[in-house]
Design a protein around this nucleic acid. Structure first.
Lengths: 198, 198
DNA sequence: GCGCTAAAAGCAAATAATTTGCGTTAATGG
DNA sequence: CCATTAACGCAAATTATTTGCTTTTAGCGC
């Protein structure tokens, strides 16, 4: 039961949540996550441990809660002037963030929690970003694949590799983008050679 | 430190490991995983808790250890007579297993552990199965995609959806197979034996 | 086989984390 | 402003984890 956003979000309750979240972020900066305990977080946050236990249940739910906030995109995808450029730049940045130590840890925290609501949120964040790129592409009159096609063709392979093996190379990431754009049904005003290469 | 396959695999040590693994499997059958604790497992296995603590460190490593064994494929992919049939049948079965409650839990256990060696093993298992299908296809003179193409085009999207959202529909899974086969060019055989050890 | 060495297990005491009952504070709604 | 009750704090009880030391036994050279 991640007591996130229902039931009494006012004053004190919100302050406690913010304080606990800050304590977690602060502790994760200076120490190994294996050494972070609920009593420690409670002391850092200035609350009693039982508050955390009752509200989050276990450490993993709290970590997942904090991680999902950090995974929320804080900026719009960069506008490079073309759909291909937008998607390439966004994808490379996404891959870098997710495959970094911090990104990996946060993903692990989100997936390790009992409750998969946080994982769904992460998926929604990613889809939103891609939808923005798609909207811009359409506004320019460019073709752009379905969001699902991008999720399956670009995001899923990247995440799979990060979780189950090693970080994908930048070349591999570019290939994924190239392939998903090449499979787009409506032909964009781009040279055909750019779509087939790779 | 998952003390799996090094250092003194003989008699008693092996017996203890087997006993503990059995205890975990047995307990997971009858109770919620949130209620499974190390002292409980120790009692069921007839060992002292400190043995488990020293050997696996924490519950998650032990659960990951057990889960990866259960995720090891126990049969060859079904031979349907064609590459498409083989891949379709295998994929549907894989998707069903992984998206079941048990499959999800095991995947979560594997990914939640500090040590990602178990996750790599799961990846290797999957690649091995696909390599077998590929070998058969080539023996028949059929074209078959790269293992990596199948991982990116079929396995990754399925796993991503299971982890971050909902179970993919059977139609979606068939589409993934169709698309990866449509992109296939003829290529040399890839021996499965070269891809995995243990 | 026989003993030597050290890794792994057992035991129990010490420490730390988690749960729980109950009183107190303060957010929400009328 | 008052009533209601969710959420918090506190402390005692329970349970899990760590740790020092002893015992067992696998692995190995003879």
């Amino acid at each position: 039961m991640p007591a996130k956003e229902n039931l009494r979000p006012g004053g004190r309750s919100a302050r406690v949540q913010a304080s606990v979240h800050n304590a977690v972020r602060s502790l994760l900066k200076t120490m190994d996550r294996a050494d972070v305990t609920i009593p420690l977080i409670a002391a850092e946050a200035g609350v009693t441990p039982s508050t955390i236990y009752r509200r989050w249940g276990e450490l993993q739910e709290l970590l997942a809660d904090v991680a999902v906030e950090r995974l929320r995109p804080d900026m719009l995808p960069i506008d490079t002037g073309s759909a291909r450029g937008d998607l390439e730049v966004w994808t490379e940045q996404y891959c870098e963030e997710m495959s970094s130590g911090i990104g990996r840890d946060m993903m692990r925290d989100v997936l390790a929690a009992q409750d998969n609501a946080n994982a769904c949120k992460c998926d929604a964040f990613t889809r939103e970003q891609i939808a923005l790129i798609a909207e811009r592409a359409h506004a320019r009159g460019e073709a752009f694949p379905d969001i699902d096609a991008v999720m399956d063709g670009v995001v899923a392979p990247i995440i799979y590799r990060i979780l189950f093996g090693d970080q994908p190379s930048i070349e591999r990431v570019r290939d994924l983008v190239t392939n998903v754009l090449a499979a787009t049904t409506i032909r964009p005003p781009q040279p055909a050679s750019a779509l087939i290469s790779g």
